[in-house]
């Protein structure tokens, strides 16, 4: 148990983080290398500054809760989405315990959020996930496109959050939950580049592309600096 833990928080962690970061970086590079101005019918290079402006704005605008016409049209989903994603991004990065492990193992860590804040964010993520699952089951328009793979992705994210939270709140004998948390967390890191979780970076790529498309080709300066998402 002891040695398993030290493997998981040592070499195991290094491997998962390496696969995660390198894998996602490769996905990002491959995405942009695979853009083809003739096939996409978007003249990226000659209009790069318009493209950058429109692309970055499009990626930014969709990160703002209720910031777009689309988000405003779907208030329930928007709330679930931001509950889920806020915690899913912030907790792994800024949890005190995570950064303590980093400091212990590698001698550096990120600043930490107060425990109370990460607790709230974790609960918010779990609630967000719960309602997103519910929505998937309840709404016919979501059910018809739902596959087992979608539930696998949800589980890949849910297990580390739920187990981590149980380990955090249970007073004693939480080693089992901690083990589940670490294994599932690392599994998520390792699988991210190869699954739909690659949207962690490909979201920015795909949003950039459509924003650039609208600014370069589909109207551009005629409707002001950027498409009014």
């Amino acid at each position: 148990m002891e040695s398993l833990m030290s493997f998981l928080t040592g070499p195991g962690l290094i491997i998962s983080l390496a696969v995660f970061f390198i894998g996602l970086a490769v996905r990002l590079v491959l995405y942009f290398m695979g853009l083809d101005w003739r096939l996409d019918r978007v003249a990226y290079k000659p209009h790069m500054s318009e493209g950058m402006r429109g692309g970055l704005y499009s990626a930014y605008k969709w990160l703002v809760p209720f910031g777009t016409f689309g988000w405003r049209a779907q208030p329930f989903f928007t709330i679930c989405f931001f509950l889920l994603h806020l915690g899913a991004v912030l907790v792994p990065l800024f949890l005190t315990a995570h950064n303590e492990i980093l400091r212990m193992r590698f001698g550096f860590g990120l600043p930490s959020l107060p425990q109370g804040v990460t607790d709230v964010l974790t609960v918010a993520t779990i609630i967000g996930l719960f309602f997103i699952i519910l929505r998937r089951i309840a709404l016919t328009e979501v059910r018809i496109i739902t596959t087992a793979y979608d539930y696998f992705i949800i589980a890949l994210v849910a297990v580390p959050f739920v187990s981590g939270f149980i380990a955090r709140v249970s007073s004693a004998g939480s080693d089992g939950w901690l083990l589940v948390h670490i294994i599932s967390g690392e599994l998520m890191l390792v699988l991210a580049p190869f699954t739909k979780l690659s949207h962690i970076v490909l979201y920015f790529a795909s949003r950039w592309q459509l924003g650039a498309d609208y600014s370069i080709k589909r109207g551009g300066h005629r409707r002001g600096p950027c498409f009014p998402w």
Binding site: L30, Y31, F32, M33, G34, L35, D36, L39, D40, K196, S198, H199, L202, Y203, A205, S206, Q209
Partner: peptide
């Protein structure tokens, strides 16, 4: 290419 493939994948 990647634009369409990524759309379908993610």
């Amino acid at each position: 290419k990647t634009r369409t493939k990524t759309w379908l994948e993610i």
